[in-house]
Design a protein around this nucleic acid. Sequence first.
DNA 1: ACATGTGAAGCGCTTCACAGCG
DNA 2: CGCTGTGAAGCGCTTCACATGT
Lengths: 227, 227
Amino acid sequence: MTRPIPPATVERLPLYLRCLEDLAPDREQISSRDLAALAHVTAAKVRKDLACLGTYGVRGKGYAVQRLRFEIRFALGLTREWGVVVVGAGNLGRALAGYAGFPGSGFAVVGLFDADPGVVGTPVGGLTVEPVDRLPDVAGDEGAAIGVIATPASSAQEAADRLVAAGICSILNFAPTLISVPEGVEVRPVDLSSELRVLSFHLHRSASDGAPSRGQPCDDPSSSSDS
Amino acid sequence: MTRPIPPATVERLPLYLRCLEDLAPDREQISSRDLAALAHVTAAKVRKDLACLGTYGVRGKGYAVQRLRFEIRFALGLTREWGVVVVGAGNLGRALAGYAGFPGSGFAVVGLFDADPGVVGTPVGGLTVEPVDRLPDVAGDEGAAIGVIATPASSAQEAADRLVAAGICSILNFAPTLISVPEGVEVRPVDLSSELRVLSFHLHRSASDGAPSRGQPCDDPSSSSDS
DNA sequence: ACATGTGAAGCGCTTCACAGCG
DNA sequence: CGCTGTGAAGCGCTTCACATGT
């Protein structure tokens, strides 16, 4: 039951959870097919993924929504709250600080830091921007477990070093650069520019395949796809 | 040479390109091993990926940096500039508008929209926030090809519908919800809350495996990993 | 009859190992 | 000799099909 969950499944569990959370409150059961439609995946995938949790659905009926929500939260470690610190208090950092810590999310932003003295002291949501030097203190006192890097690329490695030094070993990196960290520290890059470039690839490709137009090979306001 | 490039390779090309762009200007050659170290991947992967481009390296020497940069840009469709419109002018939207359109990126933000009349008219960078109703006009006039959704989840589907109606078929969705679009429209979700939840999974897991501490199983300030 | 759980087949990506070329 | 380009093996994920259970 607590067999190693495949990475691909771990990446989808948050998706299922969000679909389940958005469900009507009176919905008690859901089939793999219906959940698959909501999550934009296949039903077989849903069943295989959920089977990893040791959560048993009911044959002929489906899964108990409430139970399923709990099982996924449990598997993801969302039965407790994790402290998050954000480094970089520009627009992005401020957006992420508000975005991440909403009540009930399982995450609480406990610190927002910036290297620029001109920004330090600014109130953001319920927090005040602090100097990066205070990172170790805050992270330690508040028991922060996750760090978010929202600095320019040029400061990202330094931010990562500070986070690691403060005992944080899970990092979300929004800066458009790779960072190096000691073994045992997990970094997940989130990169706008790379995403745009991948979109560019597909635009470029479909522009070449037939349609000679300027990059809008779709003129088909047809079916709103799945459900 | 223009054989279908595997999706996994497409996702890595922007990474290689960024590494090449960050290289010292006088660097003329680079081996697959060195590029692999910079990109945090394996050398075999680099060679297989680059072979897809029909870009030939020089045996015994490596790849010509300049040439390689051009080939990757070409493959990604970055030899021209793509117009980008951003829907949602909160902190996130403003951050993305500045982030995406910097000169030389291959992208130009041509419009920033918001449904809130209180925000419309605000200057952001070189742009002014416009009402969403103007989206079709601006997207048409400026030839925008990519849309970025930076609205709350509750408005994301509507934003997507407006983008599609305006003829845009490549969407980057930063809202924490799935959106449905007609076939032929590509959507890439970028989701902070899911990323945090995946990090939570790993924290949770390593906290269970041995270390009884509060979620910081790493106390190992050892090697700064690879190269 | 309906929907889950699961072996097995299918498929793509990664890794290996080395031939080939500069 | 060094490094690329590439078949082949290895591995994981997805899909299929159906036995199983209600």
